[in-house]
Simulated assay, not measured.
Amino acid sequence: MAGRKINPWLKMGLEFGPILAFFLAFGRLKDKTFTLGGTEYGGFILATALFVPLLVATTVILWRLTGRLAPMQIATLVLVVVFGGLSVWLNDERFFKMKPTIIYLLFAGILGFGLMRGRSYLALAIEEAMPLKEEGWMILTRRLTAFFLGLAVANEAIWRTMSDQAWVNFKTFGLPAALFLFFMAQGGLLKTYGTDERPGE
C-alpha cells in the first residue's frame, strides 16, 4: 500500500524533528548534572529521555497522516525505545550510542540474507517509489549492504574513541548526510537500470 501523500516539509519535520531536538537538548545540557530520585543524571541521558517519547509521538503522527510506516521506520522506532530506554533506566549512555550500530547491522543482515537467496529485499520495500530492473536492484542492494556495514563500523569507532559532542554531531548530521550522498551517488545506476514500469503493470 502506497499510503497517503502529505506535505513534504511536514514529513521532513516529523522525521528529523526529534533528531534536531536531541541535538539542541544535548547542547544545552551536556555540561550539567541533575539529581532525580537520589540518582545523578548527565545531560546526555536527559536528552535521550526527551528524544525517545518525542520519536514515538512523531512516528505515530506520521502513521496517522500517511496510513503507513516503512519497515525501516518501524525497526528504528523499536530499537530507539529499547536502547534509549535502557540508557535512561540504567543511566548508561553506551546503550543509546550502540543503537545506530545495531540498526545498520540489522539492515545489512536482512539485505545480505536476501542476496544469499538471490533476491533483493530492498526492492520489496521501495519498488513503488523507485522502479528498477531486477539487475539494478541487485546491484543497489549489494552496495547498500556494504554501505550499512560501513556506517556500523564508523559509529562504533566514533562513539568509542571520540567525545560525546563528536558522536552527537555524527548522529545528527553525519549519518543523514552520508545516506543522502550515497543515494545521490547512485544516479548512474538509476539511469542505466531505471524503468517506467510500476509493480503490477
Rank of each mutant, 00 (worst) to 15 (best):
residue 2 A to M: 12
residue 3 G to F: 10
residue 9 W to Q: 13
residue 9 W to I: 14
residue 12 M to F: 15
residue 13 G to A: 00
residue 14 L to I: 02
residue 14 L to H: 03
residue 16 F to R: 12
residue 16 F to Q: 11
residue 17 G to H: 03
residue 18 P to M: 07
residue 18 P to I: 09
residue 19 I to M: 14
residue 19 I to G: 10
residue 20 L to T: 08
residue 21 A to V: 14
residue 26 F to D: 08
residue 30 K to H: 01
residue 30 K to L: 02
residue 31 D to H: 05
residue 35 T to I: 15
residue 36 L to Y: 05
residue 36 L to W: 11
residue 39 T to Y: 10
residue 40 E to W: 07
residue 40 E to T: 14
residue 41 Y to P: 00
residue 44 F to K: 00
residue 45 I to W: 00
residue 46 L to Q: 05
residue 50 L to K: 05
residue 50 L to C: 00
residue 50 L to W: 02
residue 51 F to Q: 02
residue 52 V to G: 03
residue 52 V to P: 03
residue 53 P to I: 00
residue 54 L to P: 02
residue 59 T to W: 05
residue 60 V to N: 10
residue 65 L to P: 05
residue 65 L to I: 06
residue 67 G to F: 15
residue 69 L to M: 15
residue 69 L to S: 13
residue 73 Q to G: 04
residue 74 I to N: 12
residue 75 A to G: 10
residue 76 T to D: 11
residue 76 T to P: 10
residue 76 T to H: 14
residue 79 L to N: 02
residue 80 V to P: 09
residue 82 V to T: 06
residue 82 V to S: 03
residue 83 F to P: 02
residue 84 G to V: 04
residue 84 G to S: 03
residue 91 N to S: 01
residue 94 R to I: 06
residue 98 M to W: 15
residue 99 K to Q: 15
residue 101 T to M: 14
residue 104 Y to R: 02
residue 104 Y to A: 03
residue 105 L to N: 09
residue 109 G to C: 09
residue 110 I to E: 06
residue 111 L to R: 12
residue 112 G to F: 08
residue 112 G to T: 04
residue 113 F to P: 09
residue 114 G to D: 00
residue 114 G to S: 01
residue 115 L to I: 01
residue 116 M to D: 08
residue 117 R to I: 05
residue 117 R to K: 13
residue 117 R to M: 09
residue 118 G to R: 07
residue 119 R to N: 03
residue 119 R to H: 00
residue 123 A to S: 09
residue 130 M to Q: 14
residue 131 P to D: 03
residue 132 L to T: 04
residue 132 L to Y: 03
residue 133 K to F: 04
residue 136 G to F: 01
residue 140 L to H: 08
residue 140 L to N: 06
residue 142 R to V: 02
residue 144 L to V: 13
residue 145 T to Y: 04
residue 147 F to Y: 02
residue 148 F to G: 10
residue 151 L to K: 10
residue 152 A to T: 04
residue 153 V to D: 10
residue 153 V to E: 09
residue 154 A to F: 12
residue 154 A to D: 13
residue 155 N to E: 08
residue 156 E to L: 13
residue 156 E to S: 14
residue 157 A to N: 10
residue 158 I to S: 08
residue 158 I to Q: 06
residue 161 T to H: 10
residue 162 M to C: 13
residue 166 A to Y: 08
residue 166 A to S: 13
residue 168 V to E: 05
residue 168 V to A: 03
residue 168 V to Y: 06
residue 170 F to G: 11
residue 173 F to R: 07
residue 174 G to D: 04
residue 175 L to D: 10
residue 176 P to I: 07
residue 177 A to H: 07
residue 177 A to C: 02
residue 180 F to V: 13
residue 181 L to C: 08
residue 182 F to I: 06
residue 185 A to C: 00
residue 186 Q to F: 05
residue 187 G to I: 04
residue 190 L to C: 12
residue 196 D to P: 09
residue 198 R to P: 08
residue 198 R to N: 11
residue 198 R to K: 15
residue 199 P to C: 00
residue 200 G to E: 04
residue 200 G to H: 09
residue 200 G to N: 07
residue 201 E to T: 10
